[in-house]
Computed example of a mutant assay.
Amino acid sequence: MFLLPSKNLTLTIPLVLLTGFLVGLQVDTSGLQKYILPVTILMIYPTMIGFTLGEVLRPNNKRLLFSSLAINFIFIPLLAYVLGSLFLRHHPGLFAGLAVASLLPTSNMTIAFTMFAGANVAAAIQLTVVGLITGSLLAPWYLLVMVGKYIPVDVLTVLKTLTMVVILPLIMGTLTYRLLLRKYTPEEFQAKFKPYLPAATAWGAIYIIFTSISTNAHRIVDNIEMIILVALLVQLLFYAINYLGVIQFSRYFFNRRDGITLVYGTALRNLSISIGLAATAFGADAALMVSLAFLIQGQAAAWYLRFIQRKAVIGEYCQSGREIEGRLKAR
Rank of each mutant, 00 (worst) to 15 (best):
E187T: 08
F193R: 00
M172V: 10
V158A: 01
K194E: 07
F193A: 03
K160G: 08
I171D: 05
E188C: 04
V155Y: 02
L179W: 15
F189E: 03
K183Y: 10
K192G: 01
V158D: 01
L170A: 15
L181E: 02
Y184Q: 07
T185I: 12
T161H: 05
T157V: 14
G173E: 08
I171Q: 09
T161Q: 13
Q190I: 11
K192V: 03
T174N: 09
G173P: 09
L179S: 10
V166C: 06
L159K: 11
K160A: 13
L162K: 02
D154C: 07
T185N: 08
K160C: 06
M172E: 14
V165Y: 01
I171M: 14
E187P: 03
R182M: 08
D154W: 07
Y184F: 12
L170I: 04
V158N: 01
K160I: 07
L156Q: 12
A191N: 08
E188G: 03
F189Y: 15
P186N: 02
K192S: 08
L162Y: 06
T174K: 07
A191W: 05
L181I: 11
L170Q: 04
G173I: 07
T157R: 13
V158M: 02
L162E: 02
Y184L: 13
R182E: 10
K160D: 11
R182Y: 09
K192C: 00
L168E: 05
R178F: 11
G173C: 10
K183S: 10
G173W: 05
M164F: 13
T157G: 07
I171P: 09
P169Y: 09
L175E: 10
